[in-house]
Design a binder for these strands. Structure first.
Lengths: 206, 206
DNA sequence: TAGATTGTTAATCGATTAACAATC
DNA sequence: TAGATTGTTAATCGATTAACAATC
């Protein structure tokens, strides 16, 4: 395991490996070669080996990779199956959808609360999660040691909320507002419409 | 305007330019230089000029780019503001969230119907859109000349639905199911959990 | 053992950045 | 005009792919 810096391109492929290995595991595959994995994922075998070797020598000459082992390694590399205490800000369409998404909880992302400004829903529950007022967010983060803040509000409020989260000691931000936010902690900006626009571009340029 | 192939990296940046120009326009900026645009977007000025020149010489020496003009050019390049007739399959969390999202309609993506298998909601409306049975999807696509199919079902059904869409003559697919689907038409796979996993990775590797 | 396949170094390819003449 | 900034060619950098000795 070399101490080289992991490139952005490699990082973006990690979840793909994870997902693919999960599927191989579920379909009962015990072993997989770099060329096998490359072929189902549309990559190059050399690339697969290079990628994996950023983190360790998980394979075995003449055999390939043990699916279950590699899957677990990948989960470890990504930090999945730890418990991440999360909160959502914004109980609109996207906020609600994320609240109810089983998949995240299974992977260790537990929703501790959802924040909004709409008095008519504050105090109620959405998908089993308490709805609280945004004004109480900062203290909630501090008191409960929240790890991840999910921003699902309009773009006017997004930056302000991100800053409050950072000040309150949150560790990472998952931003769905259509603005790029830069903060001194890890942040992932999900721009849903970007991929729709790319689709539109491709439709036009065939 | 050279007839070179547009690289994937450039294509992914196009929506970012579009969004940034929209914001510049809204904040009343009339002109922007490649270095100005680069600096707010975290890119390199040369890169911005290279990217834009894939599509035409939109700038003017000594002046820069006219924001409004460039914004409109970018909309044209992406194919935004045409009318795209769209349908959503799957009235779960994500399907509902997408149905109700104003932003898409504003950009020309009109939701014509939403399909599901749950008899209790078929015949009703969600966010003003008719809920129909999935069995009627193929004929609906043909009869109404649907352009874009949005897949928001579980991963077991996703590939089957994608194939039916293709057979029915849909032009592009926006897939939210957590499986990569390959079809002979343009498709954008949105893997929400991928970006969450990347966030988790970054939290662990600081 | 022979065949298969890794880990890793070297070669290639493509994308990003720098440089600068053209020109508004 | 002088200054600014483009469009474009050339240089650099990094990522992908190829090659192959090591070894299970």
């Amino acid at each position: 395991m070399k101490e080289r810096k992991i490139s952005e391109a490699v990082i973006r492929r990690l979840p793909q490996y994870y997902r693919q290995l999960e599927e191989l595991k579920e379909t009962g595959n015990e072993r997989i070669s770099s060329s096998g994995l490359a072929s189902i994922m549309g990559l190059n075998a050399s690339q697969v080996r290079q990628d994996l070797n950023c983190f360790g020598g998980f394979g075995q000459q003449g055999y390939g990779y043990h699916v279950d082992t590699l899957f677990n390694e990948m989960a470890g590399i990504l930090g999945i199956n730890r418990l991440y205490k999360s909160i959502i800000v914004g109980a609109g369409n996207i906020g609600r959808a994320l609240t109810g998404y089983e998949g995240f909880v299974q992977k260790g992302f537990k929703m501790e609360a959802i924040f909004d400004v709409d008095e008519s829903i504050i105090g109620t529950k959405l998908g089993g999660v308490d709805v609280l007022h945004v004004d109480d967010m900062a203290s909630f983060i501090k008191d409960n040691g929240i790890d991840i803040g999910i921003i699902a509000v309009g773009r006017e409020k997004a930056r302000e909320i991100a800053n409050t989260m950072v000040e309150s000691g949150i560790r990472g931000i998952w931003n769905f507002a259509p603005v790029s936010i830069s903060v001194p902690i890890p942040i992932e900006n999900v721009q849903l419409s970007d991929s729709l626009f790319v689709l539109s571009f491709r439709l036009q340029n065939r």
